[in-house]
Design a protein around this nucleic acid. Sequence first.
DNA 1: GTTGACAACCATACGCGAATGTATGTAACT
DNA 2: AGTTACATACATTCGCGTATGGTTGTCAAC
Lengths: 202, 202
Amino acid sequence: MARRTKAEAEQTREQILDAAEAVFLDRGVARASLAEIAQAAGVTRGAVYWHFRNKADVFDAMYCRVHLPMEDLFNQVLALEDGAAVDALRDYCVQSLLSLARNPRRQRVYSILFHRCEFIDELRDSNERLIAIQHRGLASMEALFRRERALGTLPNVCPRLAAVTIHTAMLGLYFDYLREPTAYDLENQAAPLVDLIFRCVS
Amino acid sequence: MARRTKAEAEQTREQILDAAEAVFLDRGVARASLAEIAQAAGVTRGAVYWHFRNKADVFDAMYCRVHLPMEDLFNQVLALEDGAAVDALRDYCVQSLLSLARNPRRQRVYSILFHRCEFIDELRDSNERLIAIQHRGLASMEALFRRERALGTLPNVCPRLAAVTIHTAMLGLYFDYLREPTAYDLENQAAPLVDLIFRCVS
DNA sequence: GTTGACAACCATACGCGAATGTATGTAACT
DNA sequence: AGTTACATACATTCGCGTATGGTTGTCAAC
């Protein structure tokens, strides 16, 4: 094969990541081979090894493509200082679920994260980064609830427990929805579900 | 090796399952080889292939060893007809978390289920059985909430949504705890956490 | 209560495919 | 001209399933 232009090379890189999403989802990360991914992308393993060091590197790139934007948004919400922070957090949760229902790529990637990969050996680093992110999120949420409680707008619920509850409830929703998306009508139930969850902390 | 007595054979079977728990947890189900499991159990692959058909069969046996008793208990709770069913359900949730914190075997196996296996190909059947169990559990919980609401002891919350919320909240707690057990003091926090969760439906 | 004989229980050996990483080739972009 | 962006070829390793071998419980039969 001849050499491609820089833009074309970037395009094949994206093709490989697209193919990785499909193959990981279908076969699981561990059982997926780079040959399958390459074939699904219409290239050979040579191309994959040119753009990525190995399978873990492909996985990380695929993950960053969808998670980094979401993380930014989350940090943005938590930085809110005014008294409407809880409402903003609730809105963020609803929007997060709606975007999950509407964005097929997010759906695929998070489905892989929750149900199609084993976070060990080569993916151990990715997992620890994920856990670190969630720790920061939890701490921020705890601080948020603490501030709100000081303002007297919330009942006397332990901020730490409240943050853990919201966090795990959303995790469980993601987990269960992605296991069987057809069992949910997330488009219509996202808001009621989040409202119900927030009833226990407000 | 010579032939063992029937009791000794059953013991090596248990040894293999014990070893499978450790190896699956350490290496993930997909990357774990039957040779590793055999070595950890102090036998050879011949013994493994005598007691089990393949890796999926080992996985199923390991899973049934801890899940079947728990499932029985759950069905028992849901069969309660009197007005204290919600309290019984809440108690069951607390006890479920406490037993998770105290029983190392349950901890290992559920950790494998949530974080160390990809439910595809050979494990697809196991997964569908799991989903079917959860469906029945959800339906029973929904019926429970419907009955309780009819008695007027609960606020006007959609029974389906209530059941889904409790279910996913517990799923999320399992998921997050098993990812990092040291981050929780489940022994002391199980009851407060479950109480907080149930605040949104009662 | 012996005694064969069969089968249970497990170890060892073999063949096979599949996946990985690297090394090398090659044509075109810059 | 030199490097980029791949394709192709090669060597190696690993794990699976099965086939085979060997020892000893187990139990019917006498």
